[in-house]
């Protein structure tokens, strides 16, 4: 009985089979293309602003393209490529200072704020009254959402010379420290780290506090019953349980600090002394996109940027592997027909 039906299916008139097949394959084609129509806008944007720039930045870094030969130098021709820019970077008189600055800036900001302060806020705000804790966390989100120019302006006011400057006026003055000078001139590094740290702390704060809140209450209760102090509970129960968020925040924020320079540019612009607070990412920007010394050097600037691009790609791929993002992806539960 069933066999017969199947053979009929295979053997009916060619025309109707053809028509049916045609119709089906059309709707199947539509179904097959639908996902790509959804993806098309993102693909265009990503191609235009990630893929193409990625290729260009590498090529540019091998050329001597600058404002004087723009339109003349055929930078896309391999004949015009060389490693000169990279040699120039490493033989630069200020290279050791810029590298040192970058490492100090990343390490200190990360340790004191993006991880340290973040952890402190998360630990305190999860162990006090919920509403107060929440208010503190909201307060620490403010630096991140304040327009960066306004934010830097506030810090300049805080650092200002006496009698205008707030820190000089209310803290250093009464304590008799310093002579009331503009603090950005006397200790720029402190402010570079504070300015970036106050923004950076919120990222870790949010991840840490949600991770801490996700720890079942029984653990800390049990630990307290066992006679542990709050500090011991935190040390032996809480911290080991937020190991992964901790690792994630540390690595993610390292990369983000390494490549951020907007705040430093607005605050000190690498000064006040020669290259005193200039970091790697800022150097790339200065070389290529501001007329520093009246000269815009796209090729040389790109070489500085390429180093960061390569670090960025490597670290991004490492996240993907270490944090196993891929495994969180569930298979769609509707088939394509």
């Amino acid at each position: 009985m069933k066999r017969k039906k199947q053979s009929e299916e295979g053997g009916i008139s060619p025309l109707s089979t053809f028509l049916k097949a045609k119709k089906w394959s059309f709707s199947r084609l539509q179904g097959r293309l639908a996902p790509y129509t959804f993806l098309a806008p993102a693909l265009i944007v990503i191609t235009l602003f990630f893929f193409i720039p990625l290729v260009i930045v590498f090529i540019l870094s091998f050329t001597k393209l600058d404002i004087t030969n723009f339109g003349i130098l055929e930078w896309w021709r391999p004949a015009n490529w060389s490693l000169d820019n990279y040699v120039k970077i490493f033989t630069n008189r200020f290279f050791p200072r810029i590298l040192g600055n970058t490492l100090v800036y990343v390490a200190l900001t990360l340790a004191f704020f993006n991880v340290g302060m973040a952890l402190l806020i998360a630990l305190i705000t999860t162990h006090i009254n919920r509403r107060v804790g929440f208010a503190f966390r909201a307060l620490w989100l403010l630096p991140r959402i304040t327009p960066v120019v306004v934010y830097i302006m506030m810090w300049k006011a805080l650092a200002g010379p006496a009698p205008m400057g707030i820190i000089n006026n209310y803290l250093l003055g009464p304590l008799g420290i310093g002579s009331g000078e503009y603090l950005l001139n006397t200790s720029p590094w402190v402010f570079v780290i504070l300015v970036n740290g106050f923004i950076g702390a919120s990222f870790g704060m949010i991840l840490f506090s949600s991770a801490i809140e996700a720890i079942p209450k029984e653990y800390s209760t049990a630990s307290k019953v066992d006679g542990a102090t709050t500090w011991q509970t935190i040390r032996y129960i809480v911290l080991p349980m937020i190991k992964w968020p901790f690792l994630f925040v540390t690595t993610y924020q390292t990369l983000s600090l390494l490549t951020s320079f907007e705040q430093i540019m607005l605050l000190t612009d690498g000064g006040p002394g020669l290259y005193q607070t200039e970091v790697w990412a800022l150097t790339a920007y200065h070389r290529a996109l501001t007329s520093y010394f009246g000269n815009i050097q796209w090729g040389y600037g790109s070489a500085w940027a390429v180093v960061l691009v390569v670090i960025g790609i490597i670290m991004a791929i490492i996240y993907l592997r270490v944090f196993k993002f891929g495994e969180l992806v569930q298979e769609p539960k509707i088939d394509r027909l």
């Binding site: 199947q6 299916e9 089906w24 709707s27 199947r28 027909l337």
Partner: peptide
């Protein structure tokens, strides 16, 4: 394999 509605194979027919 196949699913038939009456005599018609509907494997590729959309919902």
């Amino acid at each position: 394999g196949f699913i038939y509605f009456d005599e018609r194979v509907i494997n590729d027919v959309s919902p």
